[in-house]
C-alpha cells in the first residue's frame, strides 16, 4: 500500500451555471475510494455550492446539493470555507447545508501549502 497523500479540491464556482461544481463533487466521491487524506475548500463563488435550500425544479436540473451531506459517510470530513468569500456573499455558517471549518485567508493559504496535490474546479 502506497503512502497516504494530501489531496485538496478547491471549488471556486457557483453550482448550475457551469459544470465545475458537479464535476468536482463526482471526482471527490471517486477519490474517496482510495483512502487518501481529502480536503474540500470552498472559495469565492464556490461557497454557493453549500447554500441551504437549493430548489432546482424550475431549471430542470438535478439538485446535487444533498450529496454534500453524504460526504461524511464517505469519510470526507475536512470541509473548509474561506471567511471573506462567505461574508462577501452575505452568508454565514447557518446558511450552509453541512458543517464546515471557516478559515481566514492566511489559514487557507497555509493549508494549501501543506497539500501534496491541489485540484482546482
Amino acid at each position: 500500500m502506497s503512502e497516504v497523500k494530501k489531496f485538496m479540491f478547491v471549488n471556486r464556482k457557483a453550482p448550475y451555471g457551469t459544470i465545475y461544481a458537479l464535476e468536482s463533487l463526482e471526482v471527490v466521491l471517486i477519490t474517496a475510494a482510495f483512502d487518501q487524506d481529502v480536503s474540500l475548500v470552498f472559495l469565492d463563488d464556490g461557497v454557493y455550492q453549500l447554500k441551504k435550500g437549493q430548489q432546482t425544479k424550475g431549471i430542470e436540473t438535478k439538485n446535487f446539493s444533498p450529496a454534500y451531506r453524504a460526504l461524511d459517510g464517505y469519510d470526507i470530513e475536512k470541509l473548509y470555507v474561506e471567511k471573506e468569500s462567505m461574508e462577501a456573499r452575505g452568508l454565514s455558517e447557518e446558511d450552509l447545508l453541512v458543517d464546515v471549518t471557516v478559515l481566514s485567508r492566511a489559514e487557507m493559504g497555509e493549508l494549501m501549502d501543506q497539500q501534496d496535490v491541489v485540484l482546482s474546479f
Binding site: R12, L43, E82, R105, A106, G109, E110, D113
Partner: peptide, 26 residues
C-alpha cells in the same frame, strides 16, 4: 507552492483570489 494563473485579471477573479490567500511561494 507554485500558483499558476492563466486568465486576465480584468475578466476573471483567479489572480485576486490567489493573491488574497497565498502567503508565500511562487
Amino acid at each position: 507552492m507554485l500558483h499558476i494563473i492563466n486568465k486576465s485579471p480584468l475578466t476573471n477573479g483567479a489572480l485576486d483570489s490567489c493573491l488574497r490567500v497565498a502567503q508565500s511561494g511562487d
